[in-house]
Amino acid sequence: MIPVTSARSLSEAYAILHQRPRGLRVLAGGTDLMVAVNARAGLDRIGHVLDIWKVPELRGISGAGGSLRIGALTTYTELMRSREIATHLPALALVSREVGAWAIQNRGTIGGNVCNASPAGDTLPLLLAAEATFLLGGPRGERTVAAHEFFVGYRKTALGADELLLRVDIPLIEKSHLVYRKVGTRKAQSISRTIVAVRKLAPRDVRIAAGCVAPIPLRCRNAEKAVAAGGDVRAALEQDITPIDDVRATAVYRSRVTGNVLLRLLG
């Protein structure tokens, strides 16, 4: 039987992290982790589970002081219902409504989406385009990592073995505008085939990111430069992305559709 610690505070969670039990896995909403546990996938690698679902410090959204601060345990339902999100970053509420369906939205968290680090994680292109930073914390202290530095390889992150993601911070920029488009197989409960997000600061000053087109959720800097220079954006995007064939779409389809979606979002 895998031992579980259900922490009721951040200090209780840090006490476990400090001991560094072998094979420690963090459990938030469980909508990724429990699927793996039920399928008995990688169970032998799980030595201890740290359940953080009831850690109050990791909840809540605030929009004070020039940035939007979103606790790691914030669920999709909470993002959809939040007045702060509706005011400052409505795209994040809209994308939450496209994640799974009600039951998934009630349990799945933004922190779980970030730490699971799937190239198809729906919030990730939005967070990259919005130049979010992630606040990580553990018994050794806290540090901030930029979203584009957090995803280091296929489902690999910069998170240390004794660290939690505490919060997602998004700089609020006057008059900027975040838009995205998810292309899935059907409206609800479908994993993306491709997803593109664009933050527009000025007509030629944009931040672009995409999902499902590389081993990691990707900031598309070549495409950004092409927009700034008035160049061929589609050709530049091809240099950013490295899509693959899989059960949900072919590489050729992904690169065509991602280009089309990007051009449409740029307007």
Partner: peptide
């Protein structure tokens, strides 16, 4: 009061 998939909830989280 909120809808969940009970196959994805570890019982310790519902205690």
């Amino acid at each position: 009061g909120e809808l969940v998939n009970s196959c994805l909830v570890a019982v310790c989280q519902a205690d």
